[in-house]
């Protein structure tokens, strides 16, 4: 298998910008453990899909060799800005565009100065790879793509990496349950906003830990709908597509809230 490690991580800026807030510590600590695992897997590139990079035409792939700047989140602007310095494996990105296009999914690369990099991508790269050791291949979340299309894209991206003789880490960036607090809260009292969401999240995390692919197949759709999961849990579909579909188990490095929504740092067993 080309994938040497795989992670599902949250993309909320809160964990990056206020890492010492007690309710957010489990996620930050989880990122620290995942970062060590990522480094040990020594990938040639990271295939990253963030639910917050939205596309509506085509499947978009980032193809600018280096992206630098400081981003202010649309929601959490009062928490400060997030500097980023991201390298892109442009050979692999362009090859992914062509391969995905050849599979019948309209696909394009983007290579523009000051293209807006989404918060999720920045959070994930800052916390998973703080030294910027590994180049990325970044795919957008086309709102009209379903889970099957997302899986197919990841599968093609992994195969394309294999054709270039590259080992890849796979990262899906997105949240779990989506019920949020709609008013400001005392952040030191943050928690999963709805008890039913918490129950759902924990159930899915247990199934992931145990590698119960069949039960996940049966439950993910309900989970996504009933717990208002971030973008229908397509970031999970990205990981599944990249690692061959079957889940062999996972380690939950951290679970907690992001202003009421669910968040987890998960490392998949390969």
């Amino acid at each position: 298998m080309t994938a040497v490690s795989a992670f599902l991580v949250p993309g909320s800026p809160l964990h990056l910008l206020r890492p010492d807030n007690p309710p957010w510590r489990p996620i930050v600590a989880g990122f620290e453990r995942a970062a060590r695992a990522l480094a040990m897997s020594r990938p040639d590139a990271v295939l990253l899909y963030s639910t917050q990079w939205i596309a509506v035409l085509d499947a978009l792939w980032q193809a600018r060799p280096r992206l630098t700047g400081a981003h202010v989140d649309e929601n959490w602007h009062d928490y400060g800005d997030m500097a980023f310095d991201i390298r892109v494996d442009t050979d692999l990105a362009e090859a992914c565009v062509n391969a995905v296009k050849a599979a019948g999914i309209s696909s394009k690369s983007v290579d523009y100065d000051q293209f807006p990099i989404d918060s999720g991508t920045i959070v994930a790269t800052r916390l998973l790879d703080p030294d910027g050791r590994f180049p990325l291949v970044m795919a957008a979340n086309n709102l009209y793509h379903d889970a099957a299309t997302t899986m197919r894209m990841a599968e093609i991206a992994t195969a394309t990496a294999r054709a270039q003789n590259k080992k890849v880490a796979v990262v899906g960036v997105g949240g779990l349950s989506g019920t949020v607090f709609r008013e400001p809260i005392a952040i030191e009292e943050d928690r999963i906003a709805a008890e039913e969401d918490d129950t759902w999240n924990r159930r899915i995390l247990r199934l992931l830990e145990k590698g119960e692919t069949g039960r996940l197949d049966a439950e993910v759709e309900n989970y996504a709908r009933e717990a208002r999961v971030d973008m229908g849990f397509k970031h999970f579909a990205w990981i599944r597509g990249a690692i061959g579909g079957r889940i062999f188990g996972a380690r939950v490095h951290g679970y907690g809230p992001a202003h009421g929504a669910g968040a987890a740092v998960i490392e998949f067993r390969l």
Binding site: W53, I54, A55, V56, L57, E74, N75, H77, V110, Y112, D113, Q114, F115, P116, D118, V180, F181, R182, E183, P184, H259
Partner: peptide, 23 residues
């Protein structure tokens, strides 16, 4: 925005705006 209605509150803002959908 998810938490409330927000208003630009900086007197001068400038930069380059690149549309993420139609760059």
């Amino acid at each position: 925005t998810q938490v409330g209605h927000h208003f630009l509150g900086v007197r001068h803002l400038s930069g380059k705006s690149v549309d993420p959908i139609f760059p």
